[in-house]
Design a protein around this nucleic acid. Structure first.
Length: 299
DNA sequence: GCACAGGGCCAAT
DNA sequence: ATTGGCCCTGTG
């Protein structure tokens, strides 16, 4: 099995990148080892704590150039981003320091569209399960990598997923989102929404276009724009982000989502999307950690 | 056992 | 502009 080492990395932490809620098709093997199922490939990534080098198993140097360099956003200057955001205020500085190895992946638009339609009103483990169910039923099996008993499948293409009836989709436990997925398949297949064309539209035009699909509102459109189209000025505002922003900047006062979007746009400017990822990772981790702390005390 | 919330959105007020 | 309902699952 071919493997590749990337050395001298800064602002690159595999665990942080994968656990920051932007991607769902991965599995944690150990604390420093993950299996990632994207781009029709199955790779394993290992990185020791604090290490500036990452091992990629089951890939090659040429794939590093052709696929992974772009996917992991290697060319972007995260030092500049982290530094600029840290200067904003101590809260932001703490969030950046906590997740300074985060990067925003350049993912596939179709995959982001379907994944984030599924995400609404679900917890992250549940989203991952639903995506696995759909891939198992409509995707293509991928050759496993050594010592892995779990079978992986590619994310279903529009052609593959279009074969599914609403009833079959509901059998994948996606519930009321089934007709939304059907509508996304239909609009992408008949090119009412051409995902490639969105690349050259303005962010606002692309956002409006995405929202013509049933089940795609402002939050999900922003996730697609940030994670598939690298539109760093958007600020996907979900329940976690809302609570964090209220806590940091509005003394815990209840705000409207629109007010938070307006604040973020003005305050973070073109780095809003990066700010969102640092804040999400920080906020979610600390909430989950506090929960397990409470449980431990009761036990 | 059951109430509640989870990377929201739609449709009806 | 506001609000109830929604498939399903994990958690307390």
């Amino acid at each position: 099995m071919h493997s590749v080492v990337i050395d001298h990395l800064t602002h690159f932490n595999v665990a942080q990148i994968l656990e920051s809620g932007q991607v769902f098709t991965f599995d944690k093997v150990t604390d420093c080892s993950y299996i990632l199922n994207v781009k029709q490939k199955l790779i394993k990534l290992t990185q020791q704590p604090q290490s500036s080098s990452v091992m990629l198993y089951n890939t090659t140097i040429s794939e590093l150039d052709e696929i992974w360099e772009r996917y992991f956003d290697m060319k972007t200057d995260y030092h500049h981003i982290a530094h600029t955001l840290s200067e904003k205020d101590p809260y932001m500085a703490e969030a950046v320091a906590f997740g300074k190895g985060i990067r925003i992946l350049r993912q596939d638009p179709w995959e982001m569209l379907i994944s984030f339609i599924l995400s609404q009103n679900k917890a992250i483990p549940h989203i991952k399960q639903c995506i696995y169910n759909l891939s198992e039923k409509y995707g293509t099996p991928i050759e496993s990598i050594s010592n892995e008993e779990k079978q992986y499948y590619t994310f279903p293409t529009p052609e593959q997923l279009s074969q599914a009836t609403e009833e079959e989709l509901r059998a994948c436990k996606i519930g009321f989102r089934a007709p939304y997925i059907r509508d996304a398949c239909r609009k992408v297949m008949n090119e009412e929404v051409n995902l490639n064309d969105l690349m050259i539209l303005s962010t606002e035009e692309a956002r409006q276009k995405l929202m013509t699909i049933k089940g795609v509102g402002p939050k999900i459109a922003d996730c697609i724009l940030l994670f598939a189209y690298s539109r760093s000025s958007v600020f996907p505002t979900d329940v976690w982000i809302k609570r964090i922003i209220e806590g940091f900047y509005f003394k815990g006062k209840d705000m409207k989502v629109e007010q938070i979007q307006k604040f973020a746009k003005e305050y973070y400017g073109n780095l809003a999307g990066y700010a969102q990822q640092y804040l999400f990772y920080y906020g979610r981790y600390h909430t989950l950690f506090k929960k397990s702390e409470r449980t431990r005390k009761i036990d």
